[in-house]
Design a protein around this nucleic acid. Structure first.
Lengths: 337, 337
DNA sequence: ACAATTTCTGCAAAGGTTTGCAGCATCGGA
DNA sequence: TCCGATGCTGCAAACCTTTGCAGAAATTGT
């Protein structure tokens, strides 16, 4: 049904090898032969059969992307970046949703490994040992997860947390809560670390709550605990949680930002749609997706091979101040004097 | 590097054909031979090479999904359904984002067609003729788009619109605006049609605005036009637009739902997170994604082959009433008396 | 015990491409 | 005019699996 390399060869009056070369190593052919072949190919609508090619080259031309949860808008964003870049490099992208389940995640990686040239794993939930072991059989790139010996694209979550703390401190807050995300999340650790060190340096009190599911529902749950903790500001693991907090506080008629300030992470589109709009730490998600693909396609692989380079490579994040943060209420401030 | 069928054959003391059969037609083998082969395979960590298999069977074991815009949460939702179902049937899914561009969309479909057994196209923006023509070369399933001769999964957008109108009419609204989405969108036509016919039947005035981009920004733009149109209720093409309207109305200190009621479509997660939460028509997106894959995997293909069946098959939608709708303000009602 | 079935297994071809090696033509130089 | 070098092109093997066909083994009936 589909034109093969032989059909093109015959049409152009050359051998199949020549047709093959016209596509994969065009400069080996004399200009006019190449023309002729390409013309014939176009006329017949020929496109190389990827399976046959893959069989012999051992490469598939595919890359895989695994995300913990497609319904968190953060991941479609990196997916979008990855997908766009992949297309430029003539890669197709496989997608899988691990449903926040480390076991399923590992299973998916193994299954995918066979049919792709590499897989980018977003916010991996699997264990470090599992990841290390799988990295031996397949080309892996981690995104927002650091595992020794595995190349990674990182975002400066800790730095973002520091900016958030600075912002809240400048507003006059003294006591804040951090709403933890999944404990297997590298981002969560980084965010907490950044928060803790900066708070300590500035003499702020911080209370650790959670872990909560990294979802809107998680935020609903977290809101009441935050209130009970008598803090004037809340740093949520991500925007989804922050929005949950906003919503629940609204229901309990606690005013944001008058009574309590709320900060999120990720800057998902929703963050600017909420009322009040959400102060949050923006993550370069699409860019990270693109970079991850670049690593796989070998474009920038070498710098990232060594772990140290990766660490240094953390992509910058930046606080976006919107309407969910303000100075703490007077009453509270007085009490703490 | 990877174990081949020959290695397993040797290890199990059988021929490669037998190993092949152990996987693809297990009941052709004597139980003990099968055991022996499977054991050897497991021991060697053998997994069939999909490229080689595809080369001979002509099937890839992959399906493609094309969406117009990953950042609209509606699509990750159907993607999630499709992906989950695909995994059950041992299919891998390719993803591509067409960026709301009909030309790119067509290009992507053609490129994908070669390496998949079928592709589901969400809310296709391409022309009917293009789609028909491509359906000849590849297995296509449309989602929320009706093109004669191409199997489709449809959601009852028109019915949803009717429910929305009934709801608004019951609240006492007399004059409402419809904010159009992309004119190439089948859903947009269906929604408008449902809206128009029911409004006419109930004697409501409706003003047609747009088309607007199906995004939050589109909604910002639409809000001012709606206000100028002096309507008491607004039906937006989708939730993103509705949220944009909500936001912009807030900025202009028009109160929702007191001054104006707003209804969206899709019931994306954001819809219940906004303040006020959004009354909207829920679409069975994950289910549709699953169904689309079922059609491709042949599970339910036959019923859908004929266009009529498809039309009858429209998945039910249902209005979710939240806080963005209420009776119109007195003043307006008086004016219209 | 033997023939006729039935059940299981192996042989070999096929599927479309890439690529090392060798052959041919072409060209420049002597 | 001929030789060597150079630049293109073709041959054929290889990649790994599936599958039609035929042969071997096991089973049944007589």
């Amino acid at each position: 049904m589909n034109a093969t390399i032989h059909d093109v060869a015959e049409a152009a009056g050359v051998s199949p090898s020549t047709v093959s070369r016209a596509f994969t190593m065009p400069d080996l052919l004399r200009a006019d032969t190449r023309e002729r072949v390409l013309a014939a190919a176009k006329r017949l609508g020929y496109q190389p059969n990827r399976a046959a090619r893959g069989l012999i080259t051992g490469r598939t031309g595919n890359i895989g992307v695994i995300v913990p949860d497609l319904s968190n808008p953060f991941f479609p964003a990196v997916l979008k970046g990855a997908q766009a870049r992949a297309r430029e490099s003539d890669y197709a992208v496989f997608l899988a949703d691990a449903e926040e389940d480390p076991v399923l995640e590992e299973e998916l990686i193994r299954a995918m490994a066979k049919q792709v040239d590499g897989v980018v794993i977003c916010s991996a939930r699997a264990s470090a040992t599992a990841l290390t072991s799988m990295a031996r059989d397949a080309e892996l790139v981690l995104l927002n997860r650091q595992v020794s010996g595995v190349p990674a694209i990182l975002m400066d979550s800790a730095g973002g947390a520091r900016q958030a703390v600075d912002h809240l401190a400048a507003l006059g807050h003294q006591r804040l809560a951090y709403l933890n995300g999944p404990s297997s999340s590298w981002s969560n650790k980084a965010r907490r670390r950044g928060l803790k060190t900066r708070s300590a340096a500035l003499g702020l009190e911080v209370v650790d709550l959670g872990p909560f599911p990294p979802t809107f529902e998680g935020g609903l749950m977290a809101a009441d605990l935050s209130l009970a903790a008598k803090v004037t500001a809340v740093l949520a693991y991500n925007d989804l949680v922050a929005l949950g907090v906003l919503s629940r506080l609204g229901d309990r008629s606690v005013e944001v930002p008058k009574d309590v300030s709320v900060v999120g992470f990720d800057d998902i589109p929703m963050a600017q749609m909420s009322a009040p709009s959400l102060t949050t730490v923006a993550m370069p998600s699409e860019r990270a997706g693109r970079l991850a693909v670049d690593v796989l396609s070998g474009r920038i692989g070498d710098q990232l091979r060594e772990q140290d380079a990766a660490a240094r490579h953390a992509l910058p994040t930046s606080l976006i101040v919107r309407s969910s943060t303000a100075p703490p209420p007077r009453a509270t401030r007085r009490r703490s004097e």
